[in-house]
Write a protein that binds this DNA or RNA. Structure first.
Length: 497
RNA sequence: UCCUCCGUAGCUCAAUGGCAGAGCAUUCGGCUGUUAACCGAAGGGUUACUGGUUCGAAUCCAGUCGGGGGAGCCA
């Protein structure tokens, strides 16, 4: 089997490709068939003079997504997508397709989500899945090369230790069971057996969140390391992200171009990531400086809106006498302007709220989505915020020995508004302290018996974190919404296809 | 649960109280290098649903259903 991404090796030879018709253009005696085979796109040219009448007729009837086997001679050609094209000598139709729903034109999101099983064939979706694949492989390689053991935490959990509101309940032989929302506690047990481990699996959250950052089913990577403190944990998280970015830049430049990702921004992620304490973050949010920046941001949006409005009016007046091709361009640009204006209007509604939220931020408050955006606004790399108030963090998080109010947790916030991609920290290793924390959080001891055993038998300082795969893919691909970073997204209100 | 926007041809959208339209897709015709090709023609409508206001409703009002974005929530 020969694939399109191997064509450079067979220039001048006659080869056979198997795939699907991605698009078709015709002239009187020429047919241009853009072939898709999963590895890329290749244009084939069918010239009526060079082929049999039967083949010509067959080729004329092709439609988008027909499955075909095309034989032809490979030419290197700058004009063609991918740099190669096929001068067709033979064609076999494997299966006929009629009226494929997704045309090469624009579609709305509802329609595309309804056809996700077909949408996956489209170029941008194809590119995003390739990047996702690189990221997954890169993560495995990173940990494997460092001697981590990949181990799987269970998906079913038997108790709802921390409340059931966010958990999906399921029937487990007449008992209640829940789908996991983190493998961390099990990760701790496995780290005590192997030293350094990581889990890689799905997690489930029954949150009623309809936003671009939320899925009900998403994939999480959770390393857990014995004898690691918070600083070592942060070093590891940073090194992992830089490893991923390096791999993607090395292997997926063409995909990033299809996604129209600003590659320069990714290249800048190689610098060390800023680390700021929660206390500094609060000060930064509540500062005069932040208020001024937000005012400036507000003004910028206003100015941009005026400019867009003007451009739109010019386009409108041009539209009447424009030729068809130009009309098409105008329509496209108008669509872009409308989308941007909607975004601006939303920002204009939101910025005052962000401003208020930032200004009123006090020590002890948790950060919202807008606060995360503001903290990373001027950064080129992710930012790590550490040392959160213990009260807003989980029972298992170790406190700062120098300040009991501070938990040794860390979040990594991605730049460009992508929000939290990593959450983690150092775990409490002392049995009595942990039992005390359970009491403070009103949690029963019984379900945690096994977990407490870890502190009874050879307890050591240890740390770990969880990386949200989809948010990471969204950030690296520059995708607005996490639903395009996973083959079949599961979100509130959608379970089909 | 709350705020906000949307629902018109297979798809993307227009029609701002007065004849329901365009582009793409489909079918037919034309064109020898197209890049979302282009040019010409044809077919394609319960304007999400229910009720109301009006001489007249896609348009205004109320409700229902479906969808987008956001807040809350997200150890």
């Amino acid at each position: 089997m020969l694939y399109i991404n191997q064509l450079a090796d067979v220039v001048g030879k006659e080869v056979t490709l198997k795939g699907w018709v991605y698009n078709i253009r015709s002239s009187k005696k020429l047919l241009f068939v853009l072939l898709r085979d999963g590895t890329g796109l290749c244009q084939s040219i069918i010239s009526q003079e060079d082929v049999s009448e039967e083949l010509w007729e067959q080729a004329s009837g092709l439609q988008q997504e027909c499955a075909v086997e095309i034989t032809g001679i490979v030419n290197a050609d700058e004009r063609s997508v991918g740099g190669h094209e096929l001068h067709v000598t033979g064609l076999k139709v494997i299966s006929v397709t009629e009226n494929y729903p997704i045309t090469p034109k624009e579609h709305g999101i509802e329609f595309l989500m309804e056809h996700r099983h077909l949408w996956l064939r489209s170029r941008k979706q194809w590119a995003a899945m390739r990047v996702r694949n690189t990221i997954i492989y890169s993560i495995h390689r990173f940990f494997q090369e460092k001697g981590f053991i990949q181990m799987d935490a269970p998906v079913f959990t038997g108790n709802a230790a921390e409340g059931t509101t966010n958990l999906f309940e399921t029937d487990y032989f007449d008992r209640k069971a829940y789908l996991t929302q983190s493998g961390q506690l099990y990760g701790e047990a496995m780290a005590m057996a192997h030293g350094k481990i990581y889990t890689f699996g799905p997690t489930f959250r029954a949150e009623k969140s309809k936003t671009r950052r939320h899925l009900t089913e998403f994939w999480m990577i959770e390393p857990e390391m014995a004898f690691y403190d918070l600083a070592m944990n942060m070093d590891l998280a940073e090194e992992m992200i830089r490893h991923i970015i390096t791999d993607v830049l090395e292997q997926n430049k063409p995909e990033l171009e299809i996604l129209e990702r600003d590659i320069e921004r990714l290249e800048k992620v190689k610098a060390p990531f800023p680390r700021i304490s929660y206390t500094e973050a609060v000060e930064r949010l509540a500062s005069e400086d932040m208020q001024k920046k937000l005012d400036a941001m507000m003004q910028e949006r206003h100015d941009e809106k005026v400019l867009l409005q003007k451009e739109k009016e010019e386009l409108d007046s041009e539209f009447g006498q424009a030729k068809k091709g130009r009309k098409f361009q105008i329509d496209r640009r108008r669509g872009q302007i409308n989308a941007r204006m909607e975004q601006i209007d939303e920002d204009l509604r939101n910025i005052p709220v962000w401003k208020k939220s930032a200004q009123e931020k006090k020590w002890g408050d948790d950060f919202g989505g807008s606060d995360e955006t503001l903290l990373t606004m001027e950064e080129e790399t992710p930012v790590m915020v550490y040392g959160y108030p213990a009260e807003i963090k989980a029972f298992y998080m170790k406190r700062d020995p120098e300040n009991d109010k501070v938990a040794l947790g860390v979040d990594m916030l991605a730049p460009e508004g992508y929000g939290e991609i990593i959450g983690g920290g150092q775990r409490e290793e002392d049995l009595d302290t942990l039992m005390q924390r359970l009491k403070e959080h009103d949690l029963p001891e019984e379900p945690f018996r096994w977990y407490l055993d870890l502190r009874r038998y050879g307890s050591v300082p240890h740390s770990g974190f969880g990386l949200g795969l989809e948010r990471t893919v969204a950030w690296i691909c520059g995708l607005k919404h996490v639903r395009e970073t996973i083959p079949f997204p599961r979100m509130m209100g959608r379970i089909y296809p």
